[in-house]
Design a protein around this nucleic acid. Structure first.
Lengths: 238, 238
DNA sequence: AAGATCAAAAATATCGATTTTATATTTGAC
DNA sequence: GTCAAATATAAAATCGATATTTTTGATCTT
């Protein structure tokens, strides 16, 4: 979540590295705790060490990568405790962003809201499309929630919110909880959508709070059932 | 605010670069909007380009540096609007951290609290020592507020809080508002200290809220009186 | 066999040089 | 004289190579 002039469409190799590695960490392709050896990344992405190290440095600020003195980079490990912390914080900040956004949304904001909700609904209500529905759902889910807060005038808030959203997404995906065609989740999205359009801030806030709380609880439960902490012990391959 | 194994006492040049540049930006030695040319930094700090670029990459995640596609790095500009945003957000997060910290503070926490408050008080009540009291006050102020939230169990929260604290500090210093021997500020610190020791969360939260609100208002007023936005137009020398 | 010591291998961090891109300057046309 | 194109300059981004540090593995000792 580096601050970059919004108009930065991958002008540098470093930027590409940042996005690619970030995506792979969030999706779980790079497992929690996995060692990020420069040489291995060089081959994987076909670039020099410099842009990779810059990208990893930035990612460590996003809490997706851990940087340890002369010992290199590691994908941030995962724990049930942190899942809870992230959920709690994300709730607080998402709510604040919504409070600021909804009253200021203009026509373009409404239209974007409608579009993204529609796309998300199709996935949540339609027939199961098969394999990579999850990637697509995560994308549309992020777009929908992003649309709600898009009118929030505070860049600082939006940036931190986006950071937490990404961290939360990583946990959600890692925990393999059922999201894609989950009736309760879709109901909440639906209610959130209606409240936002109706400019009913209090309801939107309430629904969002519950939405995040429920998801977080499910993630924490899944992680606690599985193991106390993943990505701490023996190294996992990428 | 990169995630580094807490035990990282400047093992690398990159880490040193990060800390030094960060300190200079927060203190204002590197002015808002100033161009951060690699060659100039190389000479200033006597190191190669690689560690500098890594440090700057990390700083861009802290919103202290702005990174723009093939155009290099710039010290983040400041604006009255952002001052308000940061203050607002810092209030929310500081309060949350206090809520989590105070109930969990142990004996060591209490002792640290007492020590840091004492040191801060000496500066705020004692005779004016002269020139670099401000640096010292900022240091003790940070230590005191840090001590209050030190028992907060959420690393995520503490990290983001620290980020916002640094940003807020930069604005405070830039705006040149009177902090060091300000009666109102010392009163608030005093009340906050007592409330924390007494484990009176509600009072601590209330005082902190006011404390941050008042400071932020003063900063915003100072910035609005001065200029709409600093560090946007013609380049300022470092 | 467990532990310590040393040597070899691997990986990190950094440098100096090169390539690419942006900015400033000159030149020429109208 | 003003604008635009062409050129020169400066800076950013990246690479390949090297120095340093950590980790691994082997050897020796008690």
């Amino acid at each position: 979540m580096t601050v970059i002039a919004a108009d930065t469409p991958e002008k540098t190799i470093s930027e590409r590295a940042y996005r690619m590695i970030r995506a792979e960490i969030v999706s779980g392709d790079l497992a929690p705790g996995a060692k990020l050896k420069i040489e291995m990344l060089r081959q994987r992405y076909d670039m020099g060490a410099a842009p990779l190290r810059e990208a990893l440095s930035r990612l460590s600020g996003d809490r997706l990568v851990l940087l340890s003195g002369q010992r290199g980079f590691v994908v941030a490990p995962i724990s049930a405790k942190e899942a809870a912390d992230i959920g709690n914080l994300r709730k607080i900040l998402e709510i604040e962003a919504i409070r600021q956004s909804i009253p200021l949304g203009d026509t373009a904001w409404e239209e974007r809201l409608i579009t993204t909700f529609h796309r998300l609904s199709r996935l949540e209500e339609g027939e199961d499309q098969g394999i990579d529905t999850l990637d697509e759902w995560e994308k549309q889910n992020a777009a929908f929630h992003g649309a709600i807060v898009a009118a929030c005038p505070s860049d600082v808030l939006l940036q931190i919110r986006a950071q937490l959203f990404a961290q939360h997404e990583r946990y959600r995906r890692f925990s393999r909880i059922k999201t894609v065609r989950n009736r309760a989740i879709h109901d909440e999205h639906d209610r959130l959508f209606e409240a936002a359009l109706a400019r009913d801030v209090d309801t939107a806030v309430e629904v969002t709070g519950l939405h995040i709380e429920r998801t977080t609880a499910a993630v924490v439960a899944a992680l606690e059932g599985e193991a106390p902490a993943a990505g701490q012990g023996a190294p996992q391959p990428a």
